[in-house]
């Protein structure tokens, strides 16, 4: 199968955020990385586009994303002081949405920085 080559890809594994990586991938996985270090290489190879996990889980049982979104909204809405935590391995666009959500549900938003 023809491999797709992605030039100047960005590695997010460590704070160096190297943006000069070349990736060779098929439809499901990255098969070759150039210029990434060992940590970056295993990061890229570790994630695939396969469907390895259920779309969502509610109480450990497979559910649809719609159901899970509704359940999440219900829990967060009913909480007095919900916590929104993490924000490390997500994009800035996601972080912005997370702050907006926290404001609406009246919670605390926090990241690894506080540890």
């Amino acid at each position: 199968m023809e491999l797709t080559i992605t030039k100047n890809a960005t590695c997010t594994f460590c704070g160096c955020v190297c943006d000069d990586i070349e990736l060779h991938s098929d439809a499901e996985r990255i098969v070759e990385t150039k210029r990434a270090c060992i940590l970056g290489e295993s990061w890229f190879r570790n994630h695939t586009a396969e469907r390895l996990y259920p779309d969502a889980l509610i109480d450990g049982k497979p559910a649809t994303v719609d159901e899970a979104v509704e359940a999440a909204a219900e829990y967060l809405y009913n909480a007095h002081l919900p916590l929104v935590y993490g924000l490390s391995n997500v994009t800035c666009e996601t972080q912005r949405e997370a702050v907006a959500l926290t404001e609406m549900i009246g919670g605390v938003v926090d990241s690894h920085t506080s540890l």
Binding site: T12, G15, S88, Q95, H112, T113
Partner: peptide, 14 residues
């Protein structure tokens, strides 16, 4: 020397 992924972005966005 910041660690994983986008922790720096978290600080900046907040």
């Amino acid at each position: 020397m910041r660690g994983h992924g986008n922790v720096t972005g978290g600080d900046v966005i907040m």
